[in-house]
Every structure is written in structure tokens, then in C-alpha cells.
């Protein structure tokens, strides 16, 4: 580091010390300032939340008996098998499992009499809790993903990923370009 042009009558040690100290200070300040800015940028680029989730109405709890099941479609289009497996009247009676088989993505269905979920593609079998008990999922130790459920005022709610209504989705365009009467 040359300081010839601004040479001042100071002792060499002091000069070296001052030079090192201010260099450190400068480096620290620059790192702090621009580092802070980089942190802001990182936070900006990182998705705010992985996905928006919400509790949505799924069914009237009383309308299902133990052993009943139905297919629920989440707003994002995923299918969920919701089955009632008990009569206590609690949310624990119900189970909501993704209908997508973890093996190769086929749709499973609930077999009440056999007390199991069954995937017709490769005879995958899952127990009522979604654990793989037969076929490829059992071998790979896979299970059906579960969705949280709760009961409020006798109504069953499911927590699922949400999709935005006004996101300029294909939904709005499906009708928009056609004659309104054609919808």
C-alpha cells in the first residue's frame, strides 16, 4: 500500500499500526454495509413462505359413518382420500391421506371391507394410517402423505395448500374468451 503522495512526518510504527487498523476498519465497514445489503437481497429472493395453507371446509362430520370415505379435491387440484374410521366424534376418527401413491403416482382408493387403501397399478397396499403394508410401497417403506384435520361445530376442516384466486390462473381465462352464454 503506497502512501508516498500523502506522506506525513510520522513514525513508521505508528504509520503501520494506523494503516492496519484503518484498513481493518474499512474492510469491516464495507463488509457490514454491503453484507447487510446482500442479506436483504437474499431475503427478498427467498420465497416468503413455501406455500400458503389454510383450513378449508371438507364435510359435515355427521354425514359420514365409520367406514365411509370420499374424495376431496384441494384448490390446487390434488386429490385427498378422506375416510372415517371411528365413532368417537373427534377429529381422530377421520384420516385424510393424499390419494397419490408414493410409488409411481397412481390414485389409491379406500377399501372399507378390507380396511386398507389399495393402489391398482402395482397392487400397493396401505393400512388405515397410510403406512405401506404390501406391494412396492411396503418394500420401499413408503407411506401416503397425511393432511391435518380438525372438527369445529361438527364440521370437518382440512388444512391444504391454497391457490390464489386472482393469480391470472387458467381458471379466469377458461370462460373469458368464450361467449358468456357458452359457459
Amino acid at each position: 500500500m503506497s502512501e508516498e503522495t500523502t506522506a506525513q512526518p510520522e513514525s513508521p510504527e505508528r504509520r503501520t499500526f494506523l494503516g492496519t487498523a484503518t484498513s481493518l476498519l474499512m474492510a469491516g465497514g464495507l463488509a457490514a454495509g454491503y453484507g447487510g445489503f446482500a442479506a436483504v437481497v437474499g431475503r427478498y429472493l427467498y420465497p416468503a413462505k413455501p406455500e400458503k395453507k389454510g383450513w378449508l371446509y371438507a364435510a359435515d362430520a355427521a354425514s359420514m359413518k365409520a367406514g365411509d370415505s370420499f374424495t376431496y379435491r384441494t384448490p390446487t387440484g390434488a386429490t385427498v382420500a378422506i375416510a372415517r374410521q371411528g365413532d368417537s366424534g373427534e377429529a381422530d376418527d377421520f384420516i385424510a391421506l393424499s390419494s397419490t401413491c408414493p410409488h409411481l403416482g397412481c390414485q389409491v382408493h379406500w377399501e372399507g371391507p378390507n380396511n386398507r387403501f389399495f393402489c391398482p397399478c402395482h397392487n400397493g397396499v396401505f393400512d388405515p394410517q397410510g403406512k405401506g403394508t404390501g406391494g412396492p410401497p411396503s418394500e420401499a417403506g413408503q407411506a401416503l402423505p397425511r393432511y391435518p384435520l380438525k372438527i369445529e361445530n361438527g364440521l370437518l376442516f382440512i388444512e391444504v395448500p391454497l391457490e390464489k384466486l386472482d393469480g391470472g390462473s387458467a381458471a379466469n381465462e377458461a370462460c373469458g374468451h368464450k361467449h358468456p352464454g357458452a359457459c
Binding site: M1, E3, T6, Q8, L18, G19, T22, S23, L25, M26, A27, G28, G29, L30, A31, A32, G33, Y34, G35, G36, F37, V40
Partner: peptide, 26 residues
């Protein structure tokens, strides 16, 4: 201006920049 002064100013300004970012965070 002496180089050491400049460097000190840069260090101080860098910290001040960080402070302004704290304001942004707030």
C-alpha cells in the same frame, strides 16, 4: 485528505449504511 482518514471514513460510512439497513428492516 490522508489515506488513513479516508479509510476510517469508509469504515464509518459502511457501518452507517448498515444502520440505514436496520432502519429498512424496522
Amino acid at each position: 485528505m490522508k489515506l488513513t482518514t479516508k479509510k476510517s471514513i469508509i469504515g464509518a460510512l459502511g457501518l452507517l449504511f448498515l444502520c440505514s439497513l436496520v432502519l429498512v428492516q424496522w
